[in-house]
Every structure is written in structure tokens, then in C-alpha cells.
Design a protein around this nucleic acid. Structure first.
Lengths: 145, 145
DNA sequence: AGTATATAATAAGTATACATACTAAATGTG
DNA sequence: CACATTTAGTATGTATACTTATTATATACT
């Protein structure tokens, strides 16, 4: 008689729970501060913050998403008036992405909020433990970039 | 001039990347072994493995999902012929969930595969490091159960 | 018993997340 | 230049993941 795995102690389950906690904290904090942005949307906004006129594929590569998902995210950011899409003269398949003034303002205002909220995600850990976890996660993530 | 956050070193990003890696490894391995199940579907199957005749809400609570999501997952498991839903005589709102013979077989066959694949998720880490990461993740996850 | 509250499941809506396929355009090679 | 391959973006389809609302049923309380 095969014993069932104790799922709750396996890496896969714990990682998912942590991700769940992470997005949950992000959403609550953002809402509390009066912003209407998901973590993915913020990630894209932040990536566009340097004003390099990246295209969608480049953004996707930088933050490790697939093109299809990022396409949708950018569409929503455009609808919110935070991002503009301009046809790229040098590559007629692509669009150059840039923040609107409103997008820049939001991004600036968000820096403090997002930085602070990151600590809440790991609020159960001490400073040392959190640092250790970050270290291990960075090593564990195969950066296939 | 506000410096943009280096997203790539924040907990939120690393956790998401790890989750991405986790589900990716899970899917590849399952496919390679000839199974057609997602990690969530396996989690539900494994939870039902004890044969307690749990209902959807109980399953959801155990593995920390919301009811709506689990509803869909179970529907798909039912369509695959792995799970049965029987009206609960004691609570006419609920359904008792049980594995079919095929479900039990799959679950048994999956134990080794899933256990093995968990190591691949953290293949960049040494045994000691992986253990440490697990430890920290368990502590970091607020088990609001 | 009658009523307020809580709960199980579903429905509807939004937002990821990714695979696959397709179109248009760019690039590499002979 | 002709042709094969690659790439940018979109479309389609499937599967989470969660919120809010709704319906039916239970439970608690008066």
C-alpha cells in the first residue's frame, strides 16, 4: 500500500504558496494605497521606466514572460493611459513602448510602495533569514537569459 | 531623479520566477513520463488519495486554493475519468469526491515521478541549500489554516 | 417555529500564463 | 537577388487564480 506524498512539504507546493502570498500582499497593498495595478503590470511599467523605447518582445525577455502574455498586459496598460505604442520605423513588425506622463508619475509614486511591500511578503522571516532566502532563490533560478 | 527599482532582485520577482520554473519542470517531466496532468490536478488527486470522501471546499482548504478554482480543476479531473462526484446525503449542497480505479492507478504510478521531479526544480542547489530553502519557505508561508 | 447567518457550489468577469499557429517583415546564406 | 530561417506581434485555446454575486441548504439563535 503506497503512502501518499506529503505535498505540503514539497518544493512545488511551498513555492506556489509563497507566490500566492506574494501576489496577495502586492494586491492588498496596492489597493490600500489607491493604485489599480497588478504586479505584472508594475513589472512592465518599471521595465519601461528607463525610456529606452523597448518593444514587447524585449520587455518580455527582460522580465521572463512569454510574448503572448505581455501583449495582453501592455494592452491593458495602454487602456489605462500609462503606456504608448508607436510603430518602429526601423522594424515595421515592432512597436516602441514608452510611458505616458501619467505612467511616469505612477511609476515614481510606486517606487516607495513596492519597495516597502516586498518586506511584507517575507514578514515571517527575520532580516537574516530573508536575505538568505533571497540568496538561495537567486541561485535556484536558472536564468536562461 | 528617482532610480528605478531593480526588480530582478526583489522577493516578488524571484518567487514568481521560481514558481515558473517549478511548473515548467513539472509539466515537462509529466509529459516525458506520458502523463497528462497539471501540478494542480495532481495536488487534488493526491489529496483525494486517502479516500475520505472530501467535498470540494475541504480539498480547497487543504491545499490552499479558492473554491472556484478547485471547482474547475475537479470538473476536468472528472472528465478525465479520474474522480467521481457523489451527492452528499448528509449535506445536500455538497458532493463527495472519490478517485476512480483509474484515478487510484494514476496516483500510485505518479508517486515516484512527482517525488523525483521535485529535486529537478531545485537542481541548481546542493542538498544542503535545498533543505535550507525548504526550511525558510515553510517558515515564510503564513499558514492561515 | 422563525429568522439571521454561514456555507457549498456555481456563475460571471478579469488577469495571468503558456503552447501552438499564423502573418508580416527582417535577416542570413548561397 | 532568391530562398530559408528567424523574429514581432496577434490569435486561439486551455488552465489556473481570484473576486463578487447568486442559489440552495445548514446551522445558530431567539
Amino acid at each position: 500500500m503506497m503512502e501518499k506524498l506529503n505535498l505540503l512539504e514539497l518544493p512545488g507546493h511551498l513555492i506556489r504558496r509563497l507566490q500566492q502570498q506574494s501576489t496577495s500582499v502586492f494586491q492588498e497593498r496596492m489597493k490600500a494605497e489607491g493604485f489599480d495595478l497588478t504586479s505584472v503590470q508594475f513589472a512592465v511599467l518599471n521595465t519601461l521606466g528607463k525610456g529606452e523605447g523597448l518593444d514587447q518582445a524585449s520587455v518580455a525577455k527582460r522580465i521572463a514572460y512569454d510574448r503572448a502574455t505581455i501583449g495582453g498586459v501592455i494592452k491593458r496598460l495602454e487602456q489605462k493611459g500609462l503606456v504608448t505604442r508607436t510603430p518602429d520605423d526601423e522594424d515595421r513588425r515592432a512597436f516602441k513602448l514608452n510611458l505616458t506622463e501619467q505612467g511616469k508619475d505612477q511609476l515614481a509614486a510606486l517606487q516607495t510602495v513596492v519597495l516597502a511591500l516586498q518586506k511584507d511578503i517575507l514578514s515571517e522571516l527575520s532580516e537574516t533569514e530573508a536575505a538568505m532566502l533571497l540568496e538561495l532563490m537567486m541561485k535556484a533560478v536558472k536564468s536562461r537569459g
